[in-house]
Design a protein around this nucleic acid. Structure first.
Length: 758
DNA sequence: ATCAAGGCTTTTTTT
DNA sequence: AAGCCTTGAT
């Protein structure tokens, strides 16, 4: 397949540059994903073993789409062996194999944000601190950013600057909360999201043999959206790539929008320092958008001080102006935008899936949902309260978690009395105190009242013992029984199915259906990983903990209008984009307008939003909006004025047609987890074979000159015949015809080629 | 131990 | 407006 011809010269250069450190600065719409995809395909076609490739993407969906596309070029069997996914999911799986070295169980739990906050809240209470001053969410933010900068609790406590900041904000004891939080997570056998990166760093730092193993395994490293990596991620990549320095990072500083979770543009600048002989490539031609859109976006981003200069341009048509629509209220905004979508669809024959409504905050989706539902237009909301965050789903998953890891304190607290089994707060308080006294987990106390006496009545003790016995019996099946069968058993025995089935209210019925859907998801996971080694219920839990809404699109969602935050839209594109709620204090956010750097991040966010559009881009703002249960009057966003006026057209909104009524939430569908990579299969024997040339790491050895006409065997492509040679060692390439897979041009130092004697 | 009522905060953005 | 938590009654 002649995949290289689908690229322009600028794109082709980094695709063919496989070795050594390279950085690709890719403007919006310049074909960045295409470059990454083809580069990986090209590497594999050149003979690089997919097992040696680590590719880190921003979402799991991006990873699975890229894998899909690579498969069509190099074949399914090849692509599935690439380690590809988000930092969090790739390293969660890596930790699964190595966590015991760090003192964590291999079935460690992944705490989500809610778990982390709940634990922090508990600690604040135990320390008898005022939770008005010590708000769990913001304490968690401090801890999270410490972890993302690899600052341990001890270092935190000894860092005068950090502790000084805490003192200034009248929360001098955060260092103590941090320390206890880490200890409690460790005791619970739990890692939070930040730990997945933090503990990976600890692992690679303290276990040289592990570092060495992954340095040899991942000889080629690629990182997408490099501008949004934080220090912790940066260091992982740097360590793994330290031996071969075959590292390719791709990013765009103008699209850096995640500094709130530790992303650091400094990483782009550090790249030059760490790899002085790196090669820089720039992709500046935009293939996505009209001239008006590209230039309008340029005119806004030019207002930022912090940026790497580049010149994004396009050969596309001029296209329509950017439209700015003014509305009275948020409800009118919903109707006006919805009507516009209807009109454009009628007049141009566009599909529903050609439209996206993008907003700054999830809460803004409401008015659009209402209007779309009234007009019967199909839509899909991404983000917000996702399927996995629903109470009933979290409840059942908590049982799964407890089964895999009985020390998981947050899961235990969640389900100990759900469904109601008469184990109330008073009882739990006593158990918690005992656990502190004996320095063991809650589950340990509950498992052995003889060894750990607690003053609880015998009736309550019996109930607890029943619960513990049940959980233990689930645990006994963990590695014996397929994930789905165990999940089904848990849902039944724990009484969840019955409890929800008895609830005949519409909400109860919906919850029951959601549980059924989760179970169906486990079933799908079980089936698609039937032959893999990572197919237990605890493997399912890893997937579930790290899945997001964007990762689980299904068939039913194909032709629908997209509603999402701008953050979630990164990397996507739509013919018609509506950016709504362009008002001061909303976009830019109220919390950002007092600092230049934060305001510039909001501006980059606006840049990202505008550059999602292919054909038309419409902005809207309202005069008064409902917020915090109050009507707030709003001024148009400064970003509207910052667009060079030659690209803009102002428009009056439709008149406000009054409508009334409100209905239920939209349905969101659930689909099962990601496929874990299967076992490696390689049907070739190495008998009668002589090794030629060398992989980059091995020095001498017996090598023999390859000649045209020789029969050769490739580890994965099978037998073939050399039809051509070009270049000289060490960069010699051979064209080989393989009857099984066709003609390939192999780079000899990568391709594991052997001359066949027969 | 459980439930209902009333008061309170909450909204950036996400793995 | 909605969800969460505390409070107080049973």
């Amino acid at each position: 397949m002649d995949y290289l011809s689908g690229l322009n010269e600028n794109q082709r250069a980094p695709v063919e540059h496989i070795e050594g450190p390279i950085m690709v600065i890719a403007g919006a719409g310049s074909g960045k994903t295409r470059v990454l995809t083809y580069r990986i395909a090209h590497m594999i076609n050149s003979g690089i073993d997919p097992f040696n490739i680590l590719a880190l993407t921003f979402t799991n969906k991006a990873a699975s789409e890229m894998k899909q596309r690579i498969s069509t070029i190099v074949g399914d069997g090849e692509a599935k062996n690439i380690a590809m996914g988000t930092f969090h999911s790739v390293f969660a799986k890596l930790l699964r194999y190595n966590s015991e070295r760090l003192g964590y169980p291999s079935n460690f739990t992944i705490y989500d944000t809610q778990d982390s906050r709940s634990l922090i809240k508990t600690i604040i209470k135990e320390l008898k601190l005022d939770d008005k001053e010590y708000k769990p969410a913001s304490v968690h933010g401090r801890i999270s950013s410490a972890k993302n900068n690899l600052i341990s609790p001890e270092e935190y406590a000894n860092n005068a600057e950090i502790v000084g900041e805490d003192r200034m904000s009248r929360r001098p004891l955060i260092y103590q909360i941090y320390k206890i939080y880490m200890q409690r997570c460790f005791k619970a056998g739990a890692m939070d999201f930040d730990d997945l990166l933090y503990q990976t760093n600890v692992l690679l730092r303290d276990f040289p043999e592990v570092l060495h193993y992954y340095q040899q395994k991942f000889k080629f490293v690629l990182v997408d959206e490099y501008q949004d990596t934080n220090y912790s991620q940066y260091l992982i990549v740097k360590k793994i790539a330290a031996v071969y320095e075959n590292i390719c990072v791709v990013g765009d500083d103008a699209q850096s929008i995640y500094s709130f979770r530790g992303a650091n543009i400094q990483n782009i600048l550090n790249f030059k320092k760490n790899y002085p002989d790196y090669q820089l490539y720039k992709l500046e031609q935009n293939y996505r958008s009209t001239k008006n859109i590209v230039e309008a976006a340029n005119s806004v981003i030019a207002k930022n001080q912090d940026q790497i200069k580049k010149d994004v341009w396009t050969e596309n048509d001029k296209g329509a102006h950017i439209k700015v629509v003014k509305c009275l209220t948020d409800n009118e905004e919903g109707r006006v935008i919805t009507n516009k979508i209807f009109d454009v669809k009628q007049s141009t024959g566009a599909e529903y899936s050609d439209f996206a409504i993008l907003y700054r905050t999830n809460a803004q989706s409401r008015s659009f949902e209402e209007s779309l539902r009234k007009l019967n237009m199909p839509y899909k909301i991404y983000g917000g309260l996702s399927f996995y965050q629903r109470k009933e789903i979290k409840d059942l998953i908590a049982y799964f978690r407890l089964t895999a890891n009985p020390n998981d304190e947050e899961a235990l607290k969640r389900v100990i009395n759900y469904p109601k089994r008469g184990i109330g707060n008073t009882t739990m308080e006593k158990i918690i105190i005992a656990a502190q006294q004996y320095d063991v987990s809650l589950f340990d106390i509950m498992s052995d009242f003889v060894r750990y006496p607690v003053s609880i009545g015998s009736a309550a003790q019996k109930k607890i013992i029943d619960f513990v016995t049940m959980v233990k019996s689930f645990g006994a099946d963990l590695d014996r029984v397929p994930a789905f069968d165990l999940a089904q058993r848990i849902a039944t025995s724990a009484g969840i199915l019955k409890n929800l089935h008895d609830d005949k209210t519409p909400e109860g019925v919906a919850r029951y259906e959601n549980i059924q859907e989760l179970l169906a998801g486990v079933k799908e996971f079980s089936i698609s990983n039937r032959d893999a080694e990572n197919n237990s219920l605890s493997d399912f839990l890893i997937d579930v903990a790290l899945l997001t809404d964007a990762d689980k699109d299904n068939e039913d969602d194909k032709n629908k209008i997209t509603l999402m935050t701008i953050h979630a839209s990164k990397g996507l594109e739509f013919p018609h984009v509506f950016i709504v709620g362009l008002e001061e204090n909303l976009f830019p956010s109220q919390l950002s307008i007092n600092s230049r750097t934060e305001l510039e991040e909001e501006r980059r966010l606006f840049y990202v939003a505008v550059t999602r559009a292919e054909k038309t881009c419409t902005l809207s703002h309202v005069q008064s909006r409902f917020r915090f249960g109050q009507i707030i009057s709003s001024e148009p966003s400064r970003f509207i004025d910052e667009i060079d006026e030659q690209f803009v057209e102002h428009e009056n909104a439709y008149s406000d047609k009054a409508t009334a009524g409100r209905s239920l939430n939209s349905d969101r569908k659930f689909r099962g987890g990601l496929n874990a990579p299967g076992p490696r299969t390689n049907g070739f024997s190495t008998r009668n074979l002589k090794k030629i040339d060398s992989t980059p790491n091995t020095g001498g050895g017996t090598t023999e000159t390859l000649k045209v006409g020789y029969n050769v065997v490739h580890e994965r492509f099978g037998k073939g015949k050399v039809t051509g040679l070009e270049g000289a060692a060490p960069n010699q390439k051979a064209t080989v015809f393989f009857p099984r897979v066709g003609q390939k041009t192999l780079i000899l130092k990568f391709a594991k080629l052997t001359i066949s004697e027969d």
